[in-house]
């Protein structure tokens, strides 16, 4: 229980740091949103409208109050999930834009990263158990090679070959045009179909790493006495591999899973861009290009939260799976 309380305290702190950095970073950069707009006006226009600078400042935030007052106001707004107004989707609030795009990304990254982990550790486990076997000599190098390409590059290749040349997969958007998002079969089927290739691309980028990671840990675990004893006990080979060696070897990769989740969110931007997938990654890219500060900030905050939540989930899982963690 003390462990649990300590972890919770840590996460509260992590969230606070994320919030505060998110507040500070834009303010540490030179210029302000109003400055961006004003720069597009000619000096004569500004001179002709005396009050215009104050008007824009009042409209777009920032300006005359102190940083502390801003900070308090910012925290206050966050408690109401008020992230401001998106300038590039004016007058839609940031929370609405995120609410519209984030579910696609969560589904995409969640499914892809989870599948990459399960398949990767599974193959790594078998490769280590039967070292020099087919899995070890064929799958491991193949997946390693695939993982060596950056995700956006694999994405481009896939779009070209499997999408354009072979026509196996739809190459862009999250669902067929003309469909209205909702819980009906036509939409869900179309959304799944459109997700296939992006999911495969993200999996290609990450599976190899898990294979190698799991294989290394597993090789060490196999030489443990409890694995030798399990074998001596006359257990079936598969049971020794899964319940004794694999079950212990999975713990270190599991701890790395949350860290990789953060990396996957970064790669998401490129993959969504290539597939014109209307998720949070593509939105972030557009927001950054369009100087949409509130939306950029809101999205970064959401990503930071996603990583923290992933870490928390892994901690809980670790707690469930490792009795030694529970004891300490």
């Amino acid at each position: 229980m003390r462990w649990f309380a300590r972890r919770c305290l840590f996460y509260v702190f992590a969230i606070w740091v994320a919030l505060t950095l998110n507040f500070l970073l834009p303010r540490l950069m030179p210029g302000d949103p109003a400055g961006g707009v004003l720069a597009r006006l000619s000096p004569s226009q500004i001179q002709a409208n005396p009050g215009i600078i104050q008007t824009y400042r009042a409209l777009l935030g920032g300006g005359n109050k102190s940083v502390w007052q801003d900070y308090i106001a910012y925290l206050h707004r966050l408690t109401h999930f008020n992230l401001g107004i998106s300038t590039s989707n004016y007058p839609a609030p940031v929370s609405e834009v995120i609410g519209r795009t984030l579910p696609y990304s969560i589904a995409l990254v969640g499914v892809a990263v989870l599948l990459a982990f399960i398949i990767g550790t599974g193959i790594g486990m078998i490769a280590a158990w039967k070292r020099g076997g087919t899995v070890d000599t064929v799958f491991v190098p193949a997946l390693m090679g695939l993982g060596a390409f950056p995700a956006f590059f694999t994405a481009l290749l896939c779009v070209y070959f499997f999408g354009l040349k072979l026509g196996w997969f739809p190459i862009q958007h999250a669902y067929a045009s003309g469909l209205v998002p909702g819980f009906n079969w036509a939409f869900v089927a179309s959304a799944l179909r459109h997700g296939e290739l992006p999911v495969l691309v993200i999996m290609a980028a990450f599976t190899g790493g898990w294979v190698l990671n799991m294989r290394t840990v597993m090789i060490n675990t196999i030489s443990e006495d409890y694995v030798a004893m399990a074998q001596a006990k006359g257990l079936k080979d598969r049971r020794v591999m899964t319940r004794y060696a694999g079950r212990n070897a999975i713990l270190p990769p599991l701890n790395g899973f949350a860290a990789q989740f953060a990396g996957a969110v970064g790669g998401l931007v490129f993959v969504e861009y290539v597939f014109s997938y209307p998720g949070a990654g593509l939105t972030l890219q557009q927001a950054a290009l369009g100087n949409d500060y509130p939306l950029t900030q809101g999205l970064l905050l959401v990503f930071a939260f996603a990583v923290i939540v992933a870490n928390f989930a892994m901690d809980m899982l670790n707690f469930l799976l490792d009795p030694r963690v529970r004891a300490s």
């Binding site: 006495d225 004893m229 001596a232 006990k233 006359g234 257990l235 319940r243 212990n248 490792d322």
Partner: peptide, 29 residues
């Protein structure tokens, strides 16, 4: 194995699976 010949391992300190209850390791066998 184990039915005819069983074994107490060298450094049996590490011969128990750390993530399995002792009883379950009997049951398994």
């Amino acid at each position: 194995r184990w039915r005819n010949v069983s074994m107490v391992f060298q450094s049996a300190m590490n011969a128990l699976n750390p993530v399995m209850r002792v009883g379950d390791q009997f049951v398994d066998m």
